[in-house]
Amino acid sequence: MERHFERINGYTGPMPQRATAYSAGYDIAAAETVVIQPGKIALIPTGIKVKLGRYEYFELVSRSSLPRKRHLVMPNSIGIIDSDYYPHEIMGQFLNIGDQPVVINAGDRIMQGIFRAYMVADNDDAQGYRTGGFGSTDKENESND
């Protein structure tokens, strides 16, 4: 399995890149201009999707300067893109903690993504398959208990 980024149809902006040979994270830019009002959360489209291997996920983290310079934070601290999220677009959630609207312009680097491996318990028996996109696994075989 090859891990890589792909563009969503029609997206022509920058692809994720590492800034240096020893950078852990790939800088990810906004695909569209979005205004975030004070105290509000907005979803920022990126125009990209990521292909991952089995037992891998892509961790989204805020750029370290965003809270201080732009008054933006990720409300859940990080975002987890599971390998079965492909082929959906990566989206970032941001909360404006300031008292003025914040404009995120298309092309602004807003977060970083880090490829991660994970392990599962020896007695793991997960059987579902993702059928939806952002915010919910919407998996098949889900019980309503």
Rank of each mutant, 00 (worst) to 15 (best):
D27K: 07
D108H: 01
I90Y: 00
N105M: 04
I78G: 00
V120Y: 01
S136Q: 10
V120D: 01
M15N: 09
K51D: 03
Y26N: 05
V34I: 14
I114S: 03
E56N: 12
V61W: 11
M1I: 05
Y55A: 13
A29Q: 09
K40V: 11
F5E: 08
K69M: 10
Y86W: 06
V73P: 05
G92K: 01
L66K: 07
G92L: 04
G79W: 06
E142M: 15
A126G: 09
R68F: 13
M111T: 00
I48G: 10
Q93N: 11
A42S: 14
E59C: 12
V50C: 15
L95M: 10
N141G: 01
R3V: 11
H4E: 11
K69P: 00
L52S: 06
T137H: 09
P14V: 06
D145K: 15
G128P: 06
T131N: 06
S77V: 13
K49Q: 13
E2M: 10
A121F: 09
I114Q: 08
M91C: 05
G133I: 00
G53D: 15
Y26W: 13
D122Y: 06
G135Y: 08
V103M: 13
R116M: 15
D108W: 01
V120P: 01
S23D: 10
D124A: 15
T20E: 02
Q127Y: 02
G133F: 05
T137Y: 11
I114A: 02
T46Q: 04
R68N: 09
T20K: 09
Q93E: 15
P87M: 00
M1W: 04
L52K: 08
E89N: 01
A42Y: 06
G53C: 06
I104S: 04
I97K: 09
I114N: 07
E2S: 12
R116I: 02
D125L: 08
K40F: 03
F58W: 09
K139L: 02
G133L: 06
I41W: 05
D125C: 07
M74G: 03
P67Y: 03
V50E: 05
E140N: 09
R7N: 12
M91A: 01
V73M: 07
M111R: 00
N9W: 03
K51V: 10
N144W: 12
K139C: 12
Q93L: 11
F94D: 01
G47M: 04
I114E: 08
I36H: 06
D82G: 07
D125K: 13
T33P: 07
I48W: 04
D82I: 02
V103W: 03
G13I: 02
G79L: 02
F5I: 00
I110E: 03
I104Y: 04
A19M: 04
A21Y: 00
M111L: 12
N144V: 10
H71R: 15
Y85L: 01
L60W: 01
F58P: 05
D125I: 07
Y55N: 15
D145Q: 13
E2A: 12
F115Y: 15
K40Q: 15
D108F: 04
A106G: 09
F134G: 01
Y129V: 14
V102D: 04
D125A: 11
Y11D: 08
I28G: 05
D99H: 11
N96D: 08
R68K: 14
G10P: 07
